[in-house]
Simulated scan of single mutants.
Amino acid sequence: MHLNRRHFLAASAAALVLPGRRVWAASTLTMGTVRVDSLSDGHLELPLDFTFAGLPEAEIAALLDRHGLAADGLTPPCNLTLLRDGTNTVLFDLGAGPDFMPTAGKLAEALEALDLTPGDVTHVLITHGHPDHLWGLLDEFDEPVFADAEYMIGQAEFNYWMDPATVESIGEDRASFAIGASRRLEVVADSIRKLADGEEALPGITARLTPGHTPGHLAYEIATPEGTLMVVGDAIGNHHVAFDRPDWPAPSDQDPALAAATRVALLERLADGAMPFIGYHLPQGGLGRVERTETGYRFAGDI
């Protein structure tokens, strides 16, 4: 297993100094004939309440200090995963596209930095239907960006976002999530493959139901001759409170109690197996391992 961390420029060396241009880190993990790249779709800008509302204020203050987090808001990265095995080019999630946040939706630049185009992607595996993971499905003409790819999503996740009742039950602050998800999934509804828990999406890639953040959230377990890697999506949503206190309910999860139970079980499994994984909103490209501490866990970004 070989890991290397490289820096890609948005266009050229001038991007280092010109305002408005981006430089981002991409992590590459090679496991035998399988190459996995973590690609930046940009980042989100979130108020603290999105992650910490309802949690003990004293412990939140200590956590912010311990992890060097700003008190005026969070800027979590968005890490998409790209797998190439010599036959398939598999993208996990689609990014935010242009309609969610101006700081996200940068996937096209990330692919270009790898000399790839959307036409090179053979399969798209979706973890869940939140905007920063799904809204990059369509281009400005409401056509699929990855027009030649086969799309896959969890059966339960697809059913949830396509249910007309979801827009009423999800809450007013997330109604746009439901409207946006159903509009995009409708375009590929007849062809998208719906996965069950434990189903093999592609040879060596197995869907794992990890519910709570959304009802049908999937992680994907990638088996190679040199070991196993897991793409966890938002089942582990950050590198601080999710590791320090995984049992705490998080307001960013749609079912906080179920998501906490899922998170505790997933962290335990990843730690026990020393399994590398990629988290969508974790630092350093999201690629690392789980290590136990005296009181909980920590995200270890070095493999």
Rank of each mutant, 00 (worst) to 15 (best):
residue 107 L to K: 06
residue 108 A to M: 06
residue 108 A to L: 04
residue 108 A to I: 01
residue 110 A to E: 06
residue 110 A to L: 07
residue 111 L to F: 10
residue 111 L to V: 12
residue 112 E to V: 13
residue 112 E to C: 11
residue 112 E to K: 14
residue 113 A to P: 00
residue 114 L to W: 02
residue 114 L to V: 05
residue 116 L to T: 09
residue 117 T to M: 09
residue 117 T to C: 02
residue 117 T to I: 06
residue 118 P to N: 12
residue 118 P to I: 12
residue 119 G to K: 06
residue 120 D to C: 10
residue 123 H to R: 10
residue 125 L to W: 06
residue 125 L to F: 11
residue 127 T to R: 00
residue 127 T to C: 04
residue 128 H to F: 05
residue 129 G to M: 05
residue 129 G to P: 02
residue 130 H to P: 00
residue 130 H to S: 13
residue 131 P to F: 00
residue 132 D to M: 07
residue 132 D to L: 10
residue 133 H to C: 02
residue 133 H to G: 00
residue 137 L to N: 00
residue 137 L to Q: 01
residue 139 D to N: 04
residue 139 D to P: 01
residue 140 E to D: 08
residue 143 E to S: 13
residue 143 E to G: 06
residue 145 V to L: 14
residue 145 V to T: 15
residue 145 V to K: 13
residue 149 A to Y: 10
residue 151 Y to N: 05
residue 152 M to D: 02
residue 153 I to V: 01
residue 154 G to R: 01
residue 154 G to S: 05
residue 155 Q to H: 12
residue 155 Q to T: 13
residue 156 A to E: 15
residue 156 A to L: 14
residue 156 A to G: 06
residue 157 E to P: 02
residue 161 W to I: 01
residue 161 W to P: 06
residue 162 M to Q: 12
residue 163 D to G: 10
residue 163 D to H: 09
residue 165 A to D: 10
residue 168 E to W: 05
residue 168 E to L: 14
residue 169 S to N: 12
residue 170 I to T: 06
residue 171 G to Y: 08
residue 171 G to T: 08
residue 172 E to M: 10
residue 172 E to P: 05
residue 173 D to Q: 15
residue 174 R to V: 03
residue 174 R to Q: 12
residue 175 A to M: 08
residue 175 A to K: 12
residue 175 A to R: 15
residue 176 S to Y: 15
residue 177 F to A: 08
residue 177 F to R: 07
residue 177 F to V: 08
residue 177 F to I: 06
residue 178 A to N: 10
residue 178 A to K: 07
residue 178 A to E: 03
residue 178 A to R: 11
residue 179 I to L: 15
residue 180 G to K: 04
residue 180 G to F: 04
residue 182 S to V: 10
residue 182 S to M: 07
residue 183 R to E: 10
residue 184 R to T: 04
residue 184 R to A: 08
residue 185 L to N: 01
residue 187 V to I: 03
residue 189 A to T: 04
residue 189 A to P: 02
residue 190 D to Q: 13
residue 191 S to V: 14
residue 191 S to L: 10
residue 191 S to R: 15
residue 193 R to Q: 14
residue 196 A to R: 15
